[in-house]
Amino acid sequence: MDSIRIHTEEMSEAAAALHAGDRVLLSGTVYTARDAAHKRIFALLDKGEPLPFELCGASVYYAGPTPTPPGLPIGSCGPTTSSRMDVFAPRLLDLGLKCMIGKGNRSQAVVDAIRRNKAVYLCAIGGAGALAAQCVRSLEVIAFEDLGCESVKRLEFEDFPLLTAIDCYGGSLFGG
């Protein structure tokens, strides 16, 4: 099966064409955010303060890249377990998030929010962070620098290999 090439700017339209099991090569802007960053993003939302990036149409990668070696744009950047963000995901999806990238199954509340918002959940290969880093062209810390590897970063992907795990119709590689 061939991979589907998608640019993050097209994710709102592309999500409707993806089905669980489809291979994707993703290019474009992706933001990293894990547990600690999600907590701070929620605090900003609750206070009505601006977020570090526009949620509408955004793609978020649940990753905490390792320190960047000299001469490279990023260190190893494998996915973290997505279910840790399940408490945050439905609200972010309702606010316009279109794509989440991580590893592992998601809760029914997240699946329902993916369907409701015509979004998508893509899985990256766990344990292959050094290989994944080869598809990252640039990295910029844009928020919460004090969180170190868990700061919010803007990454530029080029043909980052992913698998459609939960599609906007509720189809899932995890069953159910």
Rank of each mutant, 00 (worst) to 15 (best):
residue 2 D to L: 11
residue 2 D to I: 10
residue 4 I to L: 09
residue 6 I to G: 01
residue 7 H to Y: 04
residue 9 E to P: 00
residue 13 E to N: 07
residue 15 A to Y: 00
residue 16 A to W: 04
residue 16 A to M: 07
residue 18 L to I: 01
residue 19 H to F: 02
residue 20 A to I: 00
residue 22 D to H: 10
residue 23 R to C: 09
residue 25 L to K: 06
residue 25 L to N: 02
residue 25 L to D: 05
residue 26 L to F: 09
residue 26 L to M: 10
residue 29 T to K: 15
residue 29 T to G: 08
residue 31 Y to D: 13
residue 31 Y to W: 14
residue 32 T to K: 05
residue 34 R to L: 08
residue 34 R to F: 03
residue 35 D to A: 13
residue 36 A to F: 12
residue 36 A to E: 14
residue 37 A to Y: 14
residue 40 R to H: 11
residue 42 F to C: 13
residue 44 L to I: 04
residue 50 P to V: 10
residue 51 L to E: 06
residue 52 P to Q: 10
residue 52 P to Y: 06
residue 53 F to Y: 12
residue 54 E to C: 14
residue 56 C to F: 15
residue 57 G to E: 11
residue 59 S to P: 14
residue 61 Y to E: 08
residue 62 Y to F: 15
residue 66 T to F: 05
residue 70 P to K: 09
residue 70 P to T: 05
residue 81 T to L: 11
residue 88 F to A: 11
residue 89 A to M: 13
residue 90 P to S: 12
residue 91 R to V: 11
residue 92 L to D: 00
residue 93 L to W: 03
residue 94 D to S: 05
residue 98 K to D: 00
residue 99 C to Y: 06
residue 102 G to F: 06
residue 107 S to T: 10
residue 109 A to T: 05
residue 111 V to G: 05
residue 111 V to Y: 07
residue 113 A to Q: 05
residue 115 R to S: 02
residue 118 K to Y: 03
residue 120 V to A: 02
residue 121 Y to F: 06
residue 123 C to D: 06
residue 123 C to I: 02
residue 123 C to H: 02
residue 125 I to T: 13
residue 125 I to F: 12
residue 129 G to E: 11
residue 129 G to N: 09
residue 133 A to F: 13
residue 133 A to Q: 09
residue 133 A to W: 13
residue 134 Q to I: 09
residue 134 Q to K: 15
residue 134 Q to G: 14
residue 135 C to G: 04
residue 136 V to E: 07
residue 136 V to Y: 07
residue 139 L to S: 13
residue 140 E to K: 15
residue 142 I to G: 06
residue 146 D to K: 04
residue 146 D to A: 05
residue 147 L to E: 06
residue 147 L to G: 03
residue 147 L to P: 03
residue 149 C to S: 13
residue 150 E to Y: 07
residue 154 R to E: 15
residue 156 E to S: 15
residue 161 P to N: 09
residue 162 L to W: 09
residue 162 L to V: 12
residue 163 L to H: 09
residue 164 T to Y: 01
residue 166 I to P: 02
residue 167 D to N: 05
residue 173 L to H: 00
residue 173 L to A: 00
residue 174 F to H: 00
